[in-house]
Simulated assay, not measured.
Amino acid sequence: MTESPNLAPLLEAVERYFTLMYDSDVSQFDRVFAPTAQLHGFRDAELRILPVSDYRAMLVSTPSPKSKNAPRLQEILLIDLASSAQALVKVRVRIDVHQYVDYLAYHCIEGTWLITAKSFHVERRYDPTGT
């Protein structure tokens, strides 16, 4: 990119993602994920592929980390802007007992940064007792 990017809208989108992962408030889901998004990653040594609609349903049916008073961990590890409308953001986030490293592909669609693809990796699993 040759122009100086305004990162604030993208950072706000990443914050919406972190908040959704913690409170599972699916009323905000469409402000985080594009309707065509897909999620890919390994869980229990198997590649999981989820359409975004299945992921939304999973959030609805599972108690949120917030409701369990689970610790909140979130950090941005990398931002790579391909253009003013496309970015890759690498984050670390804890969702209940799982700590993930996620690669989030963002596209700016009608002025809003949305995740169009998520690739996740379970980096750590915490004991349910908190250790």
Rank of each mutant, 00 (worst) to 15 (best):
F18V: 03
I109H: 10
A82C: 03
I95E: 13
G130M: 08
S84P: 01
P51D: 15
P63L: 01
I95T: 15
Y55V: 05
H40Q: 09
K66E: 15
T62S: 10
L88W: 06
S53C: 12
K118Q: 07
L11K: 14
T36P: 06
S64P: 04
Q28S: 15
S64Y: 02
E46K: 14
F120A: 06
Q99M: 15
L77I: 09
V97R: 10
Q99P: 08
F33T: 08
A8F: 12
E12I: 05
I79P: 00
P71C: 07
L10D: 04
R94K: 13
S27H: 11
T112D: 13
S64L: 01
I79E: 03
D127C: 10
M21F: 01
D23M: 08
D44P: 00
R92P: 00
R72Q: 12
R56E: 10
Y55L: 09
V101N: 09
E46N: 12
S4H: 02
W113D: 03
H107V: 05
N6D: 14
G111C: 04
A70V: 04
G111V: 01
V122H: 07
T131E: 14
D23T: 10
P51H: 13
Y126G: 02
S67C: 07
L78K: 11
Q86C: 06
K68M: 11
L7Y: 06
Y106P: 04
F42Y: 14
N6L: 04
G111R: 08
N69A: 11
P35D: 09
A57W: 07
V97I: 14
L88S: 00
K68L: 13
I109P: 05
R72I: 07
S27K: 13
T116F: 06
L77C: 08
H121N: 15
L73M: 07
C108L: 10
L78E: 12
I76V: 15
K90V: 15
